[in-house]
């Protein structure tokens, strides 16, 4: 598999480290049900067939965290965005993950 890093270009899979679901959001630790929310955040994962949004780390490259949209059946990649920009824009627009 190859991933096109938005900073470094098209690179082989072995430069990257996979983390997991990019659609979960760290809960507000102050909320009253924080414990339950964190259990969901850390452990509960959907496993849908088809497209995933997932976090990858360009370990052997620019050290950027990336949000990769990938079909887990075919490994087709539909988009790669810098996680920092995704996160910042979500914070400014208030968009939910």
């Amino acid at each position: 598999m190859r991933i096109t890093c938005p900073h470094c270009g098209n690179r082989s899979l072995d430069e990257f480290i996979y983390l997991g679901d990019a659609t979960v959001q760290r809960p507000d630790p102050a909320r009253p049900d924080a414990l339950a929310a964190f259990v969901d955040y850390v452990y509960q994962r959907e496993n849908p067939v088809g497209r995933h949004r997932e976090l990858w780390y360009h370990n052997a490259g620019c050290h950027a965290w990336l949000v990769v949209t990938r079909d887990v059946r075919t490994h087709e990649i539909f988009g790669v965005e810098p996680a920092k920009e995704v996160s910042l824009s979500e914070k400014t627009t208030g968009a939910a993950r």
């Binding site: 760290r26 370990n59 996160s87 910042l88």
Partner: peptide
């Protein structure tokens, strides 16, 4: 060392980019 660096980058870039 490498794992911590990766973790700190995650915290900064993804959790607290501001």
């Amino acid at each position: 060392a490498a794992k911590v660096m990766q973790h700190l980058e995650f915290c900064h870039q993804w959790l607290w980019p501001d």
